[in-house]
């Protein structure tokens, strides 16, 4: 098993947001987590990535058998965890290339590998930028600065492609995307899928799941997973709306 979340509780500024999440993810799987606004989707993504403002009060997360919550944010990334941000941060003065070069080499150092030389690194960037149809000019631009919403999301998937994670969480990567950008982003994610890695797609809308076909769909509501099923669950949700879950939550599964 790649990832196992057991009875995870987490607070933000003293308010409990996650109230006992249980989830198992195997290598090769794509899981979708859906839910209404405020259900805790982004909190779950941030807790897995190690954001400090989130305080885990109970439960544990095993990743490749390791206690993920004990690792620093950077060590999680070096172990192969990747978070595609819902709101990618703009960093003026830092180029995309500089960020990725530092990241790739810090990860390689952690794993006891040689640093990539400039030529190899640049050809890696070129190859991966094609995957999300990102123009080369974005490589030298400051990270996300002045990027459109769609460009920011494509940049997230581009970074994911370069860092080649074992476990990725895409936090509402579809929100605000037009249909072309959505197709490009989804296409990138699909191409990155292997038998060894796994992805959690966090989304509010079913539409993304037309492009990224999940193996499992989970519905998060008020900090708990209240329904799990196959990809047809997403369609059912789309049809009936979240009110269906809200009224139905008594029969929570998992």
């Amino acid at each position: 098993m790649l990832l196992e979340i057991k009875n995870l509780h987490a607070n933000v500024e003293g308010t409990e947001i996650l109230k006992g999440i249980n989830l198992k993810v195997n290598a090769g799987e794509v899981h979708a987590i859906m839910g209404p606004n405020g259900s805790g989707k982004s909190t779950l993504a941030s807790v897995l990535a190690g954001k400090e403002e989130y305080e885990v009060t109970a439960g544990e997360v095993l990743y490749n058998g390791k206690n993920l919550l004990e690792l620093s944010t950077e060590d999680r990334a070096r172990e192969g965890v990747f978070l595609a941000f819902q709101y990618p941060v703009e960093i003026p003065g830092v180029s995309n290339t500089n960020l990725l070069k530092t990241a790739v080499n810090e990860i390689r150092k952690y794993r006891g590998e040689e640093e990539l030389d400039s030529m190899d690194f640049l050809s890696l960037l070129k190859e991966k930028s094609k995957l999300v149809e990102l123009d080369q000019k974005f490589l030298s631009r400051a990270v996300n600065e002045g990027f459109s919403g769609g460009e920011k999301k494509r940049n997230e998937i581009f970074q994911m492609a370069v860092l080649n994670p074992t476990f990725a969480i895409l936090d509402e990567t579809d929100s605000g995307l037009d249909i072309d950008a959505l197709r490009i982003v989804a296409n990138g994610v699909n191409k990155l899928k292997t038998k060894e890695n796994a992805t959690i797609v966090v989304t509010h809308y079913q539409r993304l799941l037309d492009y990224i076909i999940p193996d499992f769909v989970h519905v998060l509501y008020k900090g708990k997973i209240v329904k799990s099923g196959g990809k047809e669950l997403a369609l059912e949700l789309e049809e009936k709306g979240y009110d269906w879950v809200k009224s139905d939550k008594a029969e929570a599964v998992v």
């Binding site: 944010t73 950077e74 070096r78 978070l83 003065g93 830092v94 960020l99 530092t102």
Partner: peptide, 20 residues
């Protein structure tokens, strides 16, 4: 946090942001 989430350590992240 964004830089760290890409595998960049505390010191290197600080240095990058100061350069910026």
């Amino acid at each position: 946090f964004y830089l760290k989430s890409r595998g960049i350590g505390e010191d290197a992240a600080t240095a990058i942001l100061i350069h910026a």
